[in-house]
Structure formats: C-alpha cells, structure tokens
C-alpha cells in the first residue's frame, strides 16, 4: 500500500468521525422522542426499551402542532407566490433598464442583504396599517425581508436570457407585459424554483419575525409552537424531542430530495456576488 492511499484512508476516517459529530445530535433527538419521560431524562443514545408512539399523539394534541403546520404552510406558500411575481418583475427591469432610478433602487435592495430589520417600528407600522397579527401582514414582512436575496439571484439569472429575445418579440408587436409574462417569466423558472425553496426554508425556520410580530396564538408558526411547548414541558425531554422531530422532518425530507437545489440556492446568491 503506498503512502498516498494510506493518507486517503486516514482522511476519510477523520471525515466520517466528524460527520458523526453532525449526525449524533440529531440521532439523539430521534431515539429519545420514543422513550418515556424517565428514560428520556438520561439523554443517552440507547434504543428505547419500549417505543412510546403516544408521545407523538400527545404532542399533536397538546402542542397545537397541526395548527402551527397549517400556519407555516400558509405563510410560506403565500410568501413564495408574492416573491416569485414581484421579484421576477423587478429583476427583469433591473437587468434590462439603464435608467438611474432603477439602478438606485437595485442598490437599495442590495443594501437590504446586510441590514438588520428594525423590528419594533415594524410592529407599530403593522398596527397603523391594521395588518398587525394578520396573515397578510406577516406575508408582507417576509416578502420585504426576502426581496433583496430573491432579486439578487433573479437579476443574476436574467443575464443569461438574451436581450435579442425581447427585441424580436417587441418588433412582432407584443407589449412589454406580454413579453414578460409569456416569454421571460417561463424562462426564469429554474431560478424561481431555487428562490422558492430557499424562501420556504427561511419562513419555516424563522423564529425572530413571528416572535415579535405574532401575538395571536391561533396564528403561531411551527417555531413559535416549539418555543412555547418547550417552555411548558421543559422537564419532559421525550415530548419536546417528539415535537422537534415533527417540525423538522418535513425540512429534512425536503433536503434529502432537493439537496442539490438547496445547496445551489443558498450559495448562488453568495458566489455570484
């Protein structure tokens, strides 16, 4: 065996051990979510002596999980819808137009990639506009905070759509609206899919926004329901873990199926910058 092969084997072993450091914490929640509260309090990786599926039944009943699921699905799909339309329209104009006001607006969007949200004045604004604690208000908040990222990615993608396409379409007498909706928008689809996946992940995982903006418990998202459930059942790890597994499994499944899309999407904004 040559030394090159040996060093590869050592490298692979080290990496697999490190992958264990990522995996084991997640395995810990999974196995303990099936234990009774006494066994789960030991917080170890042993398999449960008996599988307590009723933990899940209890969490679904008491943790308001289904409602949280409904709210998170509703908010993320509505945000995807508003973002896909508004951001792709904006990206189309930003990439094509040379007007100063358009360029200026683009810079203002890019600045938003970095800026933290002024959350307390946002609450006041929402109250003033009568959209506080409404689904619409939260969707507008998410749209506003995710527009910079979405426009950035979509504008980058617009560069690959040739301008000659616009010219030939307009020469044929179609309007700008028709050009956009029947030609450009369909061509943007791969980038819109990428952006949408990221938007769903961000909205699903976000805690900061709903924590400040949603006081009505009927509209709590999954993250708020975990937070409140964990505060209530602090001492019962089995239930808290079952709650966590229910909330993160859709994300993990999505990740397993769409891994390439998710990684590309998360990095596309970063690398082209």
């Amino acid at each position: 065996m040559n030394s090159r092969k040996l060093s590869r084997i050592i490298l692979e072993t080290v990496l697999v051990l490190l992958a264990g450091a990522v995996f084991i914490p997640l395995l810990l929640i999974l196995v303990n979510s099936f234990k009774d509260s006494r066994e789960a309090a030991l917080l170890n990786l042993a398999l449960p002596t008996k599988f307590h599926l009723e933990n899940y039944a209890y969490v679904i009943k008491k943790g308001n999980i289904l409602r949280g699921f409904g709210n998170s699905i509703l908010l993320s799909s509505m945000t995807v819808l508003t973002i896909s339309i508004t951001a792709s329209m904006a990206a189309f104009l930003i990439q094509r137009s040379k007007e100063k006001i358009v360029k200026g607006m683009y810079y203002l969007f890019v600045v938003g990639l970095i800026m933290p949200v002024a959350i307390i004045p946002t609450i006041k604004l929402m109250m003033g506009l009568q959209v506080h604690n409404t689904y619409g208000g939260i969707v507008l908040y998410y749209t506003a905070t995710l527009l910079p990222f979405s426009i950035f990615v979509l504008t980058g993608f617009m560069r690959s759509i040739p301008k000659e396409l616009d010219e030939s379409c307009l020469v044929d007498g179609c309007s700008y609206a028709r050009l956009f909706f029947s030609i450009i928008f369909p061509l943007l689809k791969p980038a819109i899919v990428t952006v949408s996946i990221i938007v769903v992940l961000v909205v699903w995982n976000d805690f900061f926004g709903p924590f400040y903006l949603i006081s009505d418990s009927k509209k709590w998202t999954v993250t708020l329901s975990i937070f409140n459930f964990a505060n209530k059942f602090e001492t019962n790890w089995a239930l808290v873990f079952a709650d966590i597994i229910i909330v993160i499994s859709p994300v993990i499944i999505l990740y397993i199926i769409l891994q390439k899309h998710i990684i590309d999407g998360m990095t596309s904004g970063a690398i082209k910058g």
């Binding site: 339309i85 329209m89 189309f92 607006m105 604004l125 506003a144 905070t145 527009l147």
Partner: peptide, 14 residues
C-alpha cells in the same frame, strides 16, 4: 415592473 416590489420593500423594510 418595479412598482410592486419597490412598494412592499419601501413600506415594510425601509
């Protein structure tokens, strides 16, 4: 084309 995005962004972020 810029109006909807700009309106939402200016109102709810800026």
């Amino acid at each position: 084309f810029l109006f909807p995005a700009a309106a939402i962004y200016l109102t709810f972020f800026i």
